[in-house]
Design a protein around this nucleic acid. Structure first.
Lengths: 352, 352
DNA sequence: ATCTAGCACTCAATGTCCATGAGTGCTAAA
DNA sequence: TTTAGCACTCATGGACATTGAGTGCTAGAT
């Protein structure tokens, strides 16, 4: 059975005032805010019902009510209005992203910072290849007799280089030979396949040449590994301290530590594949212990055709979901568009 | 006039217990710790003297004493024992640095993290060229008809590349022409000189060719700018919260914000040129307001022959100077050695 | 001349008690 | 079904006394 309209309005009023004030909400406050023409006593009855239904909680007997996780969930799913961004804010986002397209990492980093600033919460970012990355081509550039630059370009157009010092000396033609071997034998292979190919090659190649090949291929494998490793980065961690639930350091410390470690995404509580635009995880829905009392709002975006990123906002369960969701989804759309995929332009923001 | 030996021992005992406990130190505690065979009353007299001399302060009438900035300064300059690192700690440092030499940034980042872990304070790092960096050579690699990779190598052996998309198409010989022009006209120039040379070239070069040259040279200038920009990075900011002086968020917030902004070094309170090994700035000696109640212990190290870095530890004025100084100076020496300069091996640590 | 013992004084920290007030649940009347 | 009224609960905060660590000073001991 679905809730009555009045119960919904009351629940919504409670969630929104609690989000705004971080204080338990009493019947009087609700009666003023919900715009219902009933007395506080009636509201008290309704609130008691909502408490029984599990949508509200009472910190202690004579305090107001606060929303439970289920209450937030209902609010997020049914009750919440999508906020519109102001023109100024969209401007800010566009400015931040329209900078000269730098390296992917930097753009994402910058995006995280800006999102953190306009949302007042910490932000984490994450990007990874959808599929296996392979090497598209090798180039070797002579520098001195005993050093050359190896340039590796992957099929997702990332170019990395490394200055390689050789054990012996090498002539230019020899270097070109080497380059030919690399390009014929290792292009189009994933990291794992490369390791195999290298193994096989060892038996029927002169040791000196093999050593050099191995140096370059190992570098290429590092590059590929780097591409597929999902590294989480965070921005704006100190924003946490602005919110009353983290005024006690006992609360703030574990979460800050969790966020400030640069962690492998494998340990992240993130479901990349879910098709929805914006995903919200509320408090106990988070698996990880450090996030038990924390909500995460996240969105994914496409980077070109075969990479995908996640950007998310972390905050207390009492988080301004409407505000954050609006900003986040605009952001994710902008990122996707910026990284080359054609999208219908995001809904022009109306002015407030 | 110099202080009597007894006064020094008392001051030292006070500084060290205050460092350990963060509580004002009373005469009784001093009498037990300083190992002096005098009564607490005598010590009280001495402490009154030290207060008059400006080395101690009294938070309120009936509290113990705490060291003043001058007191810390005296302690650091004359009274402090250099701590020895345990074998385990040196091991840890060496492990962290002996990893495969990656990019400079990463090594420095990692160094910051480890130092932060073993010192329990936030750490900032900073690296910059001693002199003007110039480009040593250009290489251009064809990718498709309308895109090539520009590889720029600087005279401090940093190699950067960029995938450049061209407005029109280009043949291989044309690309080699381009490369020849770049290598003959822009090698050995600093960033500023490049801008001039580019300007001059504009008048007597075909517009189409010039456009391409400009694309590559602008990239090269970015690379040079990046090399000479001193970017401060920080690690372990959350360590701040472990220390009682930052249990109040009002105190912690501004400093954390200051540290977590990635800032241009021009605004940093760092004197790079001072010849000393380890430098200590105590509280009010810091110019910057955010660091008013904060001490900074920093050391510089050489990166190859023409770069220089600074690594520093930030903490409350009540900071364990002896511990931090020992770790920091070992660290800086290790970094210098690792970056190729030959040093006498650092004093073998004795076991505790 | 120093050093020490003793004592009165100061002041932050802590604990107790009480008043206040916001908020609740329940009951009975509208 | 709604409302008014009322007794009850409980966190908050002020007032006040208590405690104890630490001080400065003085007078006697070395």
């Amino acid at each position: 059975m679905s809730l009555s309209d009045r119960k919904k309005r009351i629940l919504r009023a409670i969630v929104e005032t609690y989000i705004a004030t971080a204080e338990p909400v009493g019947s009087k406050a609700v009666s003023q805010l919900a715009g219902l023409d009933v007395s506080t006593a009636t509201i008290r009855n309704e609130m008691a019902d909502l408490t029984d239904l599990g949508y509200l909680e009472q910190p202690h007997t004579s305090a107001g009510r606060i929303p439970s996780a289920a209450g937030y969930r209902l609010y997020v799913n049914e009750l919440m209005d999508r906020q519109q961004l102001t023109l100024q804010e969209t401007q800010r986002i566009n400015d931040a992203l329209n900078l000269k397209m730098e390296e992917l990492d930097r753009v994402i980093d910058r995006a995280g910072k800006v999102l953190s600033q306009i949302s007042d919460y910490p932000v984490f970012t994450l990007a990874s290849a959808k599929e296996q990355v392979t090497v598209k081509r090798f180039d070797l550039l002579m520098v001195e007799e005993n050093a050359f630059i190896a340039v590796v370009m992957t099929d997702n157009s990332v170019v990395k280089n490394k200055l390689i010092h050789m054990p012996g000396e090498l002539s230019d033609p020899q270097l070109q030979m080497l380059s030919a071997v690399l390009n014929s034998s290792f292009v189009g292979l994933s990291q794992g396949e490369m390791a195999e190919a290298l193994d096989k090659m060892e038996t029927h190649t002169a040791p000196g040449a093999f050593e050099l090949i191995a140096l370059v291929v190992e570098f290429a494998m590092e590059v590929l590994a780097d591409q597929s490793r999902q590294k989480m980065r965070t921005a704006g961690i100190t924003h946490l301290l602005e919110h009353p639930e983290y005024h006690s350091l006992d609360k703030a410390k574990p979460l800050m530590n969790y966020l400030s470690e640069e962690r492998d995404a494998s340990r992240l509580p993130v479901a990349l594949d879910s098709g929805q635009n914006v995903n919200i995880l509320i408090g106990p829905e988070n698996v990880n212990d450090a996030l038990k009392d924390t909500s995460v709002v996240m969105a994914s975006y496409d980077i070109g055709d075969n990479m995908r990123g996640v950007i998310g906002v972390v905050g207390p369960t009492r988080m301004d979901y409407a505000k954050v969701t609006a900003r986040l989804s605009y952001f994710a759309d902008s990122l996707t568009r910026m990284f080359g995929k054609e999208l219908p332009p995001p809904g022009e923001p109306e002015e407030d």
